[in-house]
Design a protein around this nucleic acid. Structure first.
Length: 595
DNA sequence: ATTAGGG
DNA sequence: CCCTAAT
């Protein structure tokens, strides 16, 4: 079930000796099993084909996480059909996707191009032609609305909006860096453009990346003709009336510009009435209500902590906290044994009570589920049924990170302790989403052990990592695809609608609560804004304990953030001069009609 | 129950 | 991640 995709241009025959990128898509629950085979090669000016260098391949590799399904085989003359070696893996990005970009150079003169970008799935070739030539794109075909599909490159937005053409080499370098997060010494403009385009398209979302580069700065380019984007970017219209669907065409193109161009403090849209001293106070003490953030009084924890300084620990007032059922948890929850048997032979571990500092040894019971009780086993069941469609990839490029999870999973499967996992529940496909799309590459979604054995694994606090460090048991490194899903979700529903995003985009991830999503987004935000201004002087220096997030994604994050005015003042300050502080409020205000 | 923020 | 305040 493999097709060597058509290679545009005349050089097809010469491809034999070039390097190949094999991308296999083996999500069995999806019916698309058309692996795409790319040959990565460069064509020199004289028409010679030069196999991609290690460096080039690396660059492409960088854009995919290490779990990616892409294997690079350099200089093999093997026919591409010979993909047995590659095992079954998943593409972190779009299965159905077409990795392609509009490339100016393919239409014009030079042929110094990479074949990879002109490769396309045959069935979409015609569309490609149409798009690359005219700007008039067909509206996206009705999306099947799996996450997978939703991330397919959106050609409709591709119309000449990546203006790499006019850039100097220097500017291109900047762009390159922004895209890949690293420098390049290549001076060939075509090459740079090509690479950047590839980078963006490979990030699976060129869709909203409407920007141009100016003075080393990435600037959004106001879209003017947005007839077909309405459903794609609900938040383009920050005016709020058209969060979903209804469309005030006038407002749309402007709102973006507002976000970028309104430099001043349009932040406080207060009533003009009081020109009293209060107004001046507002300017100075705006921080009291930092950007309209919710003000918090010191937490109980904090109060208690400071109180306990002046108090014998035995005199602690437990009652100060609403001890409704479970008093103050010093990270100690009531015992909640669901599966008595499996805990039987586990070492009884004690730990210090962290609250009193009294040194009391208390039996360590791992946390019961925080918050509300687990909905039920649905998530699990769902997960299981999803999981079945997946091929577990192992014995490949050492995935240290999840090795432990993997083994645990194995254990679970081999010896189901309770048997209740056997319960079969009808899988509810939520809005027809995910199901397969979600699982396509999240092969490391442990799921089981977390859900049913967690509470009983009394003894495992941390697990050793490959690098000698200790990782918290519960810490699941975020998959690239999870990140992608998150970003996608935010772009759809807006930052803040975590439960929505959780429900829709993460329906299959039993872990990753809405809070987790929020936290991750916060981190992404930080990362996305930290990277650029820092000139990322030491990109590879710090121990990147977690997978580096591809620059294009970060780019996207930042864009979304700006679009939704999520940029915190600090971060904005971090950027180049006070540039964008839009007066628009966040989505929640819009939602509540607060305008 | 959900969300925002601090730790 | 975890926790809590706020809504």
């Amino acid at each position: 079930m493999e097709t060597v995709v058509a290679v545009e241009g005349s050089e097809k025959s010469k491809l034999e000796g070039t390097s190949a990128i094999v991308i296999t898509c083996s999500d069995s629950s999806k019916q698309i099993a058309d692996p795409v085979v790319y040959k990565l090669a460069r064509v020199e000016g004289d028409g010679r084909l030069v196999p991609a260098t290690d460096d080039e391949v690396m660059e492409v590799e960088d854009m995919l996480d290490d779990k990616s399904s892409v294997h690079f085989v350099l200089d093999t003359c093997q026919p591409a059909s010979n993909h047995d070696t590659f095992g079954q893996e998943f593409m972190p990005i779009d299965c159905e996707g077409v990795l392609k970009v509009k490339d100016p150079s393919t239409q014009g003169g030079r042929s110094d191009t990479l074949f990879g970008t002109t490769v396309d799935l045959g069935k979409l070739n015609s569309q490609f032609e149409e798009i690359t030539q005219s700007g008039s794109t067909p509206v996206d075909e009705p999306s099947t609305s799996t996450m997978c599909v939703s991330w397919k490159p959106d050609f409709s937005k591709l119309k000449g909006e990546i203006c790499l053409d006019n850039l100097s080499v220097r500017e291109l370098h900047a762009t390159f860096k922004a895209t890949f997060g690293r420098e390049t010494s290549v001076k060939d403009k075509q090459w740079l453009k090509r690479r950047i385009s590839m980078g963006l398209s490979n990030s699976c979302d060129v869709s909203t990346t409407t920007f141009i580069i100016e003075n080393n700065r990435i600037i959004k380019k106001p879209k003017v003709e947005d007839h077909d984007d309405d459903n794609k970017e609900p938040f383009v219209g920050l005016e709020g009336t058209n969060v979903s669907g209804s469309n005030t065409s006038a407002g749309q193109s402007q709102s973006i510009q507002m976000a970028d161009d309104l430099g001043a403090n349009s932040k406080s849209v207060q009533s003009e009435s009081g020109n009293t001293p209060k107004n001046q106070n507002q300017i100075t003490s705006e921080d009291d209500n930092v950007g309209g953030k919710r003000v918090r009084k010191p937490t109980k924890r904090y109060i208690e902590a400071s109180e306990s300084e002046n108090r014998d620990h035995s005199g602690r007032t437990v009652s100060s906290v609403k001890s409704s059922g479970h008093g103050p948890r010093a990270r100690v929850r009531p015992v909640h044994n669901i599966q008595p048997l499996s805990t039987s032979n586990k070492p009884f571990v004690t730990r210090q009570d962290s609250l009193g500092g009294s040194g009391v040894e208390i039996p360590y019971v791992s946390r019961i589920r925080r918050g509300r009780p687990r909905e039920n086993f649905m998530g699990l069941m769902k997960f299981q049924s999803c999981e079945t469609g997946m091929t577990v990839k192992t014995a490949h490029n050492g995935h240290d990170l999840k090795s432990d999870d993997e083994t645990e999973k194995q254990v679970q499967k081999n010896a189901p302790p309770t048997g209740w996992v056997q319960i079969q529940q009808p899988v509810i496909k939520e809005a027809g989403e995910s199901q397969s799309g979600d699982m396509e590459n999240d092969s490391d979604e442990g799921g089981h052990e977390e859900e049913d054995s967690d509470d009983n694994n009394n003894n495992i606090l941390t697990v050793p990592t490959a690098k000698g460090g200790m990782r918290r048991k519960h810490h699941r490194p975020w998959t690239l695809s999870e990140v992608v899903k998150l970003v996608e979700g935010v772009s759809r529903y807006g930052a803040g609608r975590w439960s929505e995003i959780k429900r829709i985009s993460f329906s299959t991830c039993s872990h990753r609560t809405a809070v987790d999503l929020k936290d991750k987004w916060r981190n992404l935000l930080r990362a996305s804004f930290a990277q650029l201004p820092a000139e990322k002087g030491v990109q590879n220096s710090k121990k990147q304990s977690s997978i580096p997030i591809p620059a294009p994604i970060l780019l996207r994050v930042r864009e979304l953030a700006e679009m939704q005015s999520q940029v915190s003042p600090d971060l904005k300050a971090l950027r180049f001069g006070g540039h964008n502080s839009s007066g628009s409020r966040n989505v929640n205000d819009i939602k509540s009609g607060f305008l």
